[in-house]
Write a protein that binds this DNA or RNA. Structure first.
Lengths: 150, 150
DNA sequence: GGATAATAGTTGATTTTGTAACTAACAACC
DNA sequence: GGTTGTTAGTTACAAAATCAACTATTATCC
């Protein structure tokens, strides 16, 4: 592993490249939590995202979830189907605009959501525990800014 | 979108959940740069990652790349094949241990690497420009810690 | 030194994602 | 009020990721 670019100065360092670091961190930070909803509930990432949105925000349409989660509508469509099959959510067509349907969690879905939410909360605390309170707050703030949430 | 959990206090906020935020930020921050290597060189994410590792660190084996990039070996195997087809890299079997092969960029591969590296550098600067110098440094530090790089 | 286990990398089958075309319902415009 | 354009969501097909089984080579250990 010699530097091929030692002649020209290659001051670029992949290990500090933000998109790379963010991807690594995202991957790493999702892994343990993923095991829970995957092994315990047989859910995919797309599915828990939909579940979490409905649990956290309440009734939403597929469109709205797509906007908030930045997920493509086909992913959502399929996730909704799976969650419906498992009786975690119910869909009711909007009578004012019959193109869209209102999605809500069933009691069973809400139970699962609450369980996963509690685990998520602990998990988040564990991650945040790697930093001081101020640092963690700053981290969230910066990530929100990167995402355009502020 | 009413809060279904208003009875019990649901102080969990998906918008501040670190794994979610990290995923969003990673997605967002990869998108623009992805367009470059995708549209301009027809490369996949896996492929530019391998290319960047070889360009940035010099000669490596597939195994080593897998460890650093936390990519599964099948992904790497396929990415290496593609890059080889495009004559961006060359593989030579290690004579001491004939199971592995040393991967190096060809001059053509190095040229592409340098071009993408420069774009990456600019792009990174643009992202970092959303924060003060100190904040950006802290962000990188925190991400590295999350990834277990420190 | 020969059997057994481990390692580097590949291949094939399955699952998941991405892309584009589609249906159904509504909106806008003339 | 009918044509044209948009929007919500689905479906079909192609591309890519995941998982398990495989080959070839080296290491271990009796």
């Amino acid at each position: 592993m010699t530097q091929p670019d030692s002649a020209e100065k290659d001051d670029f360092d992949l290990r500090n490249f933000l998109p790379f670091l963010l991807n690594q961190a995202a991957e790493e930070s999702s892994l343990d939590f993923q095991k829970v909803y995957k092994n315990r509930y047989g859910m995919l990432r797309t599915e828990w995202r939909v579940l979490f949105h409905l649990g956290n925000y309440g009734e939403m349409t597929a469109k709205q979830i797509g906007e908030r989660a930045k997920m493509h509508k086909t992913k959502i469509s399929r996730a909704v189907h799976k969650l419906e099959q498992r009786r975690y959510l119910r869909r009711t067509r909007d009578e004012n605009d019959r193109r869209m349907e209102r999605l809500t969690l069933t009691p069973a879905g809400l139970t699962v959501y609450r369980e996963l939410r509690d685990i998520a909360r602990d998990y988040d605390a564990r991650l945040a525990g790697m930093f001081t309170t101020g640092e963690a707050a700053l981290l969230r703030m910066m990530l929100r800014r990167l995402v355009g949430m502020d």
